[in-house]
Structure formats: C-alpha cells, structure tokens
Amino acid sequence: MEWTSIVAIYALFWVVSAFVLLPFGVRTPDEEGVAKVPGQADSAPVNFRPGLLAKRATILAAVLCTLYVLNYAYGWIEAEDLILWGPGAE
C-alpha cells in the first residue's frame, strides 16, 4: 500500500473519529448549574474543548488506521468473510 493511501485513510478515520467522539464528555448548562445565555440552545455544551477532542480523535484514528493497514497486509479479514447470507455464504 502506498504511503499516500495510508495518509488518506488516516485522514478519513480521523474525521469519523472526531464526529463519533463529539458527544462524549460534553455537559449542558442544566447539568453544570450555569445560567444560559439568552437564545442559547438547551443542548449547547458548556465545556467544549476542541483540543482534547482532537487529541482523542488522533489516538483513535491512529489505532484504527494501524489495524486497517495490518489487516490489508496480512489479510485477517477479507471481503469473502463479510458475506453473512445470500449466494456464497456457507
């Protein structure tokens, strides 16, 4: 696999990881006991920390990308293994 392909796959994993991790650790004003700003949504986060989110997404994307590249190299799970029903299923 080319290194440029690995970088592109890592970038995709990073974006997906960031979106998956967005709701974790976020607290609303009602949970924190903080007054809301007029016009603020009830679900708006009080403690949004993009730096921490980026660090977590970087670590998760690195693990997932490593597993993906190792699976590509060693063929642990192939496309035929993902056929659960229909023609070709055993």
Rank of each mutant, 00 (worst) to 15 (best):
A18P: 00
N71P: 04
D30I: 00
K55Q: 08
S17A: 15
L21K: 08
I6G: 12
V15C: 02
I83Y: 03
M1L: 14
V37L: 13
E90T: 03
L22S: 02
V63R: 11
A62H: 11
N71V: 11
K36P: 02
Q40P: 04
V46K: 07
D42G: 02
A61Q: 05
A44T: 09
W3G: 08
A54P: 05
L67A: 09
K55Y: 07
S5L: 15
A73C: 00
I59A: 15
T66D: 04
A18H: 10
A41R: 15
A89H: 13
L70Q: 10
V16T: 11
T58Y: 12
P87E: 09
L22Y: 14
A54G: 05
W3D: 10
Y72M: 13
W76P: 06
T4Y: 12
N47M: 01
R56A: 14
F48K: 06
E32P: 06
L12R: 03
E2W: 14
I59Q: 09
T4R: 09
G88Y: 01
E2F: 10
A18Y: 10
L67T: 03
Y68D: 11
A41H: 04
P23I: 10
E2V: 10
E32L: 08
V46A: 00
W14M: 01
I83N: 02
M1W: 08
I9L: 03
G88D: 00
L52R: 14
A41S: 14
L64M: 14
E80N: 09
V69L: 05
V63P: 08
I83H: 02
P29R: 13
V16M: 08
Y68E: 13
A44I: 00
